[in-house]
Design a protein around this nucleic acid. Structure first.
Lengths: 104, 104
DNA sequence: TTGTTATATGAGTATATGATCATATATTAA
DNA sequence: TTAATATATGATCATATACTCATATAACAA
């Protein structure tokens, strides 16, 4: 079988490609990456992240929304404050393997 | 120590953040993601990829350049033909963990 | 040399996107 | 209820980017 036909045969559905590429795209911005790296060290609220990143809380909230849309982070309410954290262990794994790659 | 100070303390250098986010960004496009997924099944030349993706060879070449700039793929010449493949095992790991995440 | 094939690259264009600003929502306190 | 605090969201604008087209380069054949 030709290489092209093999690739077609083994290809995953476009829907999965789209979700996977969107996941990487969301991590592919310095601000959002700093957010998830920071959350890797423990949960933080929007105002924590705004102070850490030196950005408005609005800008942070917009980025948190995108991270949440891809299930990379989750939130927990405590009164008026929302604490964000990584959604699951896969996220930390993704970050660590990426780091290994860029550090080699 | 406050959560903000802890985050500042544990933060990795901006230079690493930039390289890491660029790496994810390069994977964060459906066309480029299809390319690396296809290369995960074996090396392919530019014309193979153009046929597989139904794109011009120019468009494919531009995307291969971006993938190569982030050391995600490498090339091997055989006469007039350049065969592309994944650069190292980290790339396949990144893809597999990403897939686990979107499939759960 | 000239011609052909395979790939690469610079410029241009249409679309996507990140930060800002203004406004809206939600929780708590008075 | 009203006010204050914390967060979310829609519109806007400036920048980034994926593809196309034209052209350039590289390897091989005649």
């Amino acid at each position: 079988m030709s290489r092209v036909n093999r690739a077609r045969d083994e290809a995953i559905p476009d829907q999965e490609i789209d979700r996977l590429s969107q996941t990487y795209k969301v991590l592919g911005d310095p601000t959002r990456l700093k957010i998830v790296m920071a959350l890797g060290g423990g949960e933080m609220c929007v105002c924590d992240l705004a102070a850490f990143l030196d950005l408005t809380e609005s800008a942070v909230s917009h980025q948190l929304r995108r991270l949440r849309d891809m299930s990379l982070i989750k939130k927990r309410r405590e009164g008026q404050i929302l604490f964000y954290s990584l959604d699951d262990d896969h996220v930390a794994d993704l970050l660590n393997i990426g780091l290994e790659h860029v550090r080699e």
